[in-house]
Amino acid sequence: MTEAKTFRYKTNLARKMSAPGGRSADEALAAADRALSSHRDAAMQALAVILTRLEAACAAQRRPDIYEQAAALLDLSGFFETGPLHPAIFSLCEISDPGAGVWDWPSIEVHVRAIRRILNSECRDTDESRLLLDGLVAVRQRLQNRTRPG
């Protein structure tokens, strides 16, 4: 009987990964952060444009557009350090989600105004922004408690 022979083929990728040199994971992450931060100003301008659309949808009470614009804000703000902006937008998404069943126009408007104030303050973590976030949490909890049976 003939004995089977097994051949181990080393792929090009395996050879490159085992070769000395290259970047460490920390170096690669730092380079990626630097590259991403070079787009921060453009992203902040894009956030302002989306927020203007959100404000217009809110003024016209175009309910379907609210969640869509809020989700777009959330997606973009998540790429950058935006301090209190991201949790404020997340809160808006929570109360404007069509499936959440907690819709309330005054609460939506309060969230949109708070988001504008936070964005205008360059997303800094300040006493005012913390107070705004605390208020948004209270508004969201009130809405969610109102819809729960009990």
Rank of each mutant, 00 (worst) to 15 (best):
P98N: 05
A43C: 06
L73E: 02
M44Q: 10
P149A: 15
S18D: 15
L13W: 14
D125I: 10
V112D: 01
R116Y: 03
H111C: 11
S91F: 01
V102T: 15
T147Y: 06
A59K: 11
I50L: 13
C93V: 13
L36T: 10
Q141M: 13
N145C: 12
S107Q: 03
A43W: 01
A88Y: 00
A14T: 14
A60K: 08
P87F: 11
A100N: 02
S18H: 09
R148M: 15
A35W: 04
L54T: 01
L76T: 01
L54N: 00
K5S: 06
T147C: 13
A138S: 14
G150P: 08
L54F: 02
P87T: 08
A100C: 07
V137W: 14
A71D: 10
A56C: 07
P98Q: 08
A59V: 08
S96K: 04
H111M: 05
P87M: 04
C58D: 09
M17V: 15
N12H: 10
I50E: 02
F80H: 02
I50Q: 03
A48L: 10
V49A: 09
A28F: 05
R62L: 14
R53L: 08
D127G: 14
L47I: 08
K16N: 15
G83A: 08
L119T: 06
R53D: 12
F79L: 04
A4L: 14
R15P: 00
G150H: 11
A35F: 08
W103P: 00
L131Y: 10
N120I: 04
Q69Y: 12
A28N: 02
E122W: 04
A56G: 09
E109A: 12
L131Q: 15
M44L: 11
R62F: 05
D33S: 09
G22A: 08
P87S: 06
L13N: 10
A71Y: 05
D41W: 01
H39K: 10
R63F: 04
R116E: 08
N12C: 07
A43L: 06
L119W: 03
Q141I: 04
P106E: 05
P149D: 15
H39S: 09
V110E: 14
P98W: 00
F90H: 13
Q69W: 08
I108C: 07
A59M: 06
P64I: 04
F79V: 01
V102C: 11
R63K: 14
A32F: 07
M44W: 04
L13G: 07
D134F: 05
E81C: 02
I95M: 03
R140E: 14
Q69E: 11
P20M: 11
F90A: 15
L132Q: 01
A114N: 13
A100S: 15
I50T: 10
R117A: 12
K5P: 00
E55K: 12
Y9P: 00
D75L: 12
A28H: 06
I50A: 01
S24N: 06
A14R: 13
S129F: 02
D125R: 09
P87L: 05
S38L: 12
I108P: 00
F80Q: 00
M1Q: 10
A138I: 03
